[in-house]
Simulated scan of single mutants.
Amino acid sequence: MRDLVVCLLAAASVVAAAPLAAQAWSGPESGIRDPNGHPFRTPSGSPLEPVHRLALLSATRDSRRDGIALADIGDRLGFWIRRDPDGEVEFAGAIHGGAFSRFDLGGPDQALIEVHYRIGVLLRARFGEVAARAELYHVSSHLGDEFLLDTGTRPISTSREGMELMLQGSPASGLTVYGGPGVLLRATPDFEPLSLRAGAAWESAPGARARFHASIDYVGWAELEWKPAVAAELGAALGQGTRVGLLLGFGPSRAEQFFRQSERLVGVSVSHVR
């Protein structure tokens, strides 16, 4: 656990120190660009997005309450961008990936409970004041060895590939909204193929002495009869892309191995996204 936390913080510090390639964008399209100036800002409040995150949480399932830690490592690499001479249309390619880990804080050794991986190829675009992102992704999950030995739980394979399309806009300064459908191309075991994701994020104006942020994210799966999985964050910015605040969640578990179980999460989160 200590080694993973050290790695997470080290990775965040390296990313934070890297020079940004962004220009000083202004206007409505500034809300739909990432810090590197590429179209479609990463919805960092969504539990599906690969970002650097460390969270200490209370997780409640039925009447049982456990202390858990989330330790996520994720990033993206833009490898191509093309803009038309008038600047109204642009296209960009990227890849992203991450590992999403959950640890048991109630046990004597803080054992790994579950880890899942997501890797995706992204095609991002901007048409005037609207951005779009198409992602072809792979997800797979695994239970921790000590958790299996201690509980006798049988692992469930949730390996799958899918495609997701989302649109994004910035209707007001500091506010970003996004949403769109997804479809599974292959899954083990067989899942109902359709999904939907939507959300909104707000950040106070740059340059202020204190900067705040708030976000909410919804994910619904046909497999779970569209039961909402909701994640929300509220807090302050510590620097370029680094945030600390309160994390809330309810609905189907964000742990892939337990996605059919409902849970409520509340705690403190520190995250970094480029």
Rank of each mutant, 00 (worst) to 15 (best):
L265H: 05
F191V: 07
I68P: 07
P85R: 05
T151G: 04
D84C: 08
P252M: 04
S253W: 08
A16H: 12
P108G: 10
G78V: 10
A69H: 04
S140F: 13
L265P: 05
V89P: 01
A17G: 04
W202V: 14
I216C: 01
L246T: 01
E90S: 03
L149E: 11
R53E: 14
C7A: 14
A236K: 03
A17F: 07
A229R: 05
G78C: 07
G251S: 03
Y218T: 13
G174C: 07
L165W: 02
P171V: 02
I73T: 03
G245V: 05
L194A: 05
P252H: 07
E90A: 08
A18W: 13
L70C: 09
S170I: 00
R186Y: 15
G220I: 00
I73V: 13
F250N: 09
V230D: 04
F91V: 10
L122V: 15
G251Y: 00
R53Y: 10
P181I: 06
H38D: 13
A69P: 05
E233M: 07
S58H: 14
P50H: 05
R209N: 14
A255E: 09
T60I: 03
L8I: 14
A229E: 03
A11W: 15
V6T: 13
A214C: 10
A229I: 04
L8R: 11
L165A: 08
L9T: 11
A232L: 01
E263F: 04
G239K: 12
E192S: 05
A17M: 13
V14P: 08
S101N: 14
F91L: 00
W25G: 03
A231N: 08
E161W: 15
A125S: 11
F40N: 06
G78M: 00
M166C: 09
I113R: 15
G74Q: 06
A55K: 14
R254C: 09
V15Q: 13
R154W: 11
S253L: 00
L194R: 12
R209Y: 09
G67C: 09
S63R: 07
A214N: 01
A231D: 08
D150F: 15
F103H: 11
D3E: 12
G235L: 00
P252Q: 02
V219K: 07
G31R: 01
W221T: 01
P43K: 03
F258R: 07
E233H: 14
H38G: 13
A11R: 14
I216W: 08
R154N: 10
T151A: 04
M1L: 08
S195R: 02
P206D: 04
D109H: 12
L185H: 10
A236W: 15
D66C: 14
A71T: 07
G45H: 03
H142Q: 12
A134T: 10
F258W: 04
H52T: 15
T42E: 07
A237D: 10
S13N: 15
A214R: 02
A11N: 11
S58R: 13
T158S: 08
F147H: 08
V139H: 01
E223R: 05
I68G: 09
A200G: 15
R118V: 11
L122I: 09
A172S: 00
V230A: 08
S195A: 07
L20W: 10
C7V: 14
W202N: 01
V89L: 15
L105V: 03
R83C: 02
L196H: 01
P19F: 03
L238P: 06
L148Y: 13
A12V: 08
V273M: 07
E135P: 02
Q168I: 02
E90M: 00
G78S: 15
R102T: 11
A92T: 02
